[in-house]
């Protein structure tokens, strides 16, 4: 199968960038999308042209490294699938594909399809954890946790931090990402002591990183490779509101 690829090329963070067209010939339908790009990159290298840079590592849909827009859709057309797990059998001969990096002011482009997502780490650092020093934990079975609760916590904990939700959102909001962490820890007894502080700090950090506000559009849920549910945003809003009413101010400014 033969495809035409229009790929965003940008040398570095200060370069303006442009779309460049490539022909991908003889693509095997069993290949993954990134393998198709590997082959193209080998050809470009042998022609003396700079290969296309893209982030990737596990190629199993779990590390969250990969991700770019394919024809305007984060991670491409297949639902609940990262681009490393997308296979060429879902495309057809003659397709024209436009590949572009995540676009959001909180995710500046570093080169070609590679963006800087360190804002996500700073959000987790602001409160996405349970403060429990090594060696200070009670027995694992000391607190019984209803299976339904731990299953629901797991549903949100699955987030891979790829950033597709931000890229898909017209407001470039990170609400699905922040909501997933707040909901994961909020579902569990271990997460209760810091629940209010967590909601306040995470929301404040997301704003400081210039992510937009959530207006319930739902594009994030549609592209999320892990199928994280929109209800985590409602859970976050509830925790945030409650905390705003009831948390003592010094609980917010402390640290």
């Amino acid at each position: 199968m033969n495809l035409t690829l229009h790929v965003w090329r940008q040398k570095n963070a200060t370069d303006k960038g442009r779309m460049t067209t490539y022909a991908a010939k003889g693509v095997n339908p069993e290949m993954s999308f990134l393998e198709m790009l590997d082959v193209l990159n080998e050809e470009l290298t042998m022609k003396g042209e700079d290969p296309i840079a893209f982030d990737h590592d596990c190629r199993e849909g779990i590390c969250g490294s990969c991700g770019f827009m394919i024809n305007g859709v984060a991670h491409g057309p297949l639902p609940k699938t990262t681009v490393c797990q997308l296979h060429m059998r879902h495309f057809k001969n003659g397709d024209k594909l436009y590949l572009e990096p995540w676009r959001a002011s909180a995710f500046p482009v570093l080169k070609d399809l590679v963006v800087n997502r360190s804002a996500f780490d700073r959000i987790i650092a602001s409160g996405g954890y349970v403060s429990v020093p090594s060696g200070s934990a009670p027995d694992g079975n000391a607190i019984a946790i209803p299976k339904q609760d731990s299953d629901r916590a797991m549903d949100s904990a699955q987030c891979i931090g790829c950033g597709a939700c931000v890229a898909a959102c017209p407001n470039a909001s990170a609400a699905l990402f922040t909501g997933a962490k707040i909901h994961h820890l909020g579902m569990l007894p271990q997460g209760q002591p810091e629940r209010k502080k967590r909601a306040l700090r995470i929301v404040a950090q997301a704003n400081a990183e210039l992510f937009g506000s959530c207006t319930n559009i739902g594009e994030c849920e549609a592209v999320c490779p892990k199928g994280i549910n929109l209800e985590v945003i409602a859970a976050m809003n509830r925790d945030f509101l409650r905390a705003s009413w009831s948390a003592r101010p010094d609980a917010v400014v402390a640290e």
């Binding site: 429990v132 934990a137 009670p138 694992g140 797991m154 994961h184 820890l185 271990q190």
Partner: peptide, 19 residues
């Protein structure tokens, strides 16, 4: 296991709530 449970790792559980 104790450490990870305390951190909020959502290990699989039985209906009775144990690991």
């Amino acid at each position: 296991i104790d450490q990870c449970v305390a951190q909020g790792v959502p290990f699989a559980r039985e209906y009775g709530g144990t690991l």
